[in-house]
Simulated assay, not measured.
Amino acid sequence: MVFLSIVNYVRARGPDEIWRKRRIFKLAAHYIGRRRNCYSVAVRNVHRALVYATKARKLKKEDMKELWDTRITSACEQHNITRFSLKEGLERANIALDRKSLSDLACWEPRTFECLAAVAKQKLELDGFVDGVDKKHPTGVNLNLKDVMLDAWLKERKN
């Protein structure tokens, strides 16, 4: 478009408006009715949806942390150790595993988690650590490091 005077140039909104509206309409493509076709309605609904999406990303992280903690706690109860004791024992044994890794082990590799719990318990006994933080008394099987070692498992498999 060629403008011979500055007045006509100022009044023309140009291609910027087309692309701005197109971006909003693209985000509103799955809506129904005027929410999809009318720009003034679509822009409100798209902005609201983007706000919800931003909040949901933070909530998803919190939900995952809660799920991982629940899995770790329930696996610890099976092996008669509290979650705090497990974390403290692994930390003292220089085993650095985060929540997600521990929960995956608890779900998909229970034998490995059992060995980690036994190592943590053994390390706490060697250090003379008394768990005074968690007042819960876990109900589960008492672990002994010798019971979950590879040699004992191999002997069991041969018999």
Rank of each mutant, 00 (worst) to 15 (best):
Met1Thr: 10
Val2Phe: 13
Val2Ile: 14
Leu4Tyr: 13
Leu4Cys: 04
Ser5Ile: 09
Ile6Met: 11
Asn8Gln: 15
Val10Met: 10
Pro15Gly: 04
Glu17Gly: 07
Glu17Arg: 15
Ile18Pro: 02
Trp19Arg: 13
Trp19Gln: 12
Lys21Met: 15
Arg23Gly: 12
Arg23Met: 09
Ile24Asp: 04
Phe25Asn: 06
Phe25Met: 08
Lys26Leu: 08
Lys26Arg: 09
Lys26Phe: 12
Lys26Met: 08
Leu27Thr: 06
Leu27Val: 06
Ala28Cys: 05
Ala29Ile: 04
His30Arg: 14
Ile32Ser: 15
Gly33Ser: 01
Arg34Ala: 15
Arg35Lys: 14
Arg35Leu: 12
Arg36Gln: 07
Asn37Pro: 08
Asn37Ser: 14
Tyr39Leu: 02
Ser40Gly: 06
Ser40Ala: 13
Ala42Phe: 03
Val43Pro: 01
Arg44Phe: 03
Asn45Trp: 13
His47Ser: 14
Arg48Val: 09
Leu50Phe: 00
Val51Met: 07
Tyr52Leu: 14
Ala53Ser: 08
Ala53Met: 08
Lys55Leu: 11
Arg57Ala: 13
Arg57Asn: 07
Leu59Thr: 12
Lys60Trp: 14
Lys61Asn: 05
Glu62Asp: 12
Glu62Ala: 11
Asp63Ile: 02
Met64Asn: 10
Glu66Thr: 09
Leu67Asn: 10
Leu67Asp: 14
Asp69His: 07
Thr70Ser: 07
Arg71Val: 06
Thr73Lys: 05
Ser74Cys: 05
Ala75Pro: 01
Ala75Ser: 01
Cys76Ile: 03
Gln78Arg: 11
His79Pro: 01
Asn80His: 05
Ile81Val: 05
Thr82Ile: 01
Arg83Leu: 02
Arg83Thr: 05
Phe84His: 09
Ser85Asn: 03
Leu86Asn: 03
Leu86Phe: 05
Leu86His: 02
Gly89His: 01
Leu90Ala: 01
Ala93Thr: 03
Asn94Pro: 02
Arg99Leu: 15
Lys100Ala: 09
Lys100Ile: 05
Lys100His: 06
Leu102Gln: 04
Leu102Ala: 00
Ser103Arg: 03
Ser103Asn: 04
Asp104Arg: 10
Leu105Ala: 05
Ala106Pro: 00
Ala106Asn: 04
Cys107Val: 12
Cys107Met: 14
Cys107Ser: 14
Trp108Arg: 14
Trp108Gln: 13
Glu109His: 13
Pro110His: 11
Thr112Cys: 08
Phe113Ser: 00
Phe113Trp: 00
Phe113Gly: 00
Glu114His: 05
Cys115Pro: 08
Cys115Lys: 12
Leu116Pro: 02
Leu116Tyr: 04
Ala117Met: 03
Ala118Glu: 02
Ala120Leu: 02
Ala120Val: 00
Lys121Pro: 01
Lys121Tyr: 10
Lys123Phe: 05
Leu124Met: 00
Leu126His: 12
Leu126Gly: 10
Gly128Phe: 02
Phe129Val: 04
Val133Gln: 08
Val133His: 06
Lys135Tyr: 09
Lys135His: 13
Lys136Trp: 08
Lys136Val: 11
His137Cys: 08
Pro138Thr: 00
Thr139Val: 11
Gly140Met: 02
Gly140Lys: 02
Val141Ala: 11
Val141Arg: 11
Val141Phe: 00
Asn142Val: 11
Asn142Cys: 09
Leu143Cys: 02
Leu145Cys: 03
Leu145Asn: 02
Lys146Met: 09
Lys146Asp: 13
Leu150Ala: 13
Asp151Gln: 07
Trp153Pro: 03
Trp153Tyr: 10
Trp153Arg: 12
Lys155Met: 07
Lys155Arg: 08
Glu156Lys: 10
Asn159Lys: 08
Asn159Leu: 10
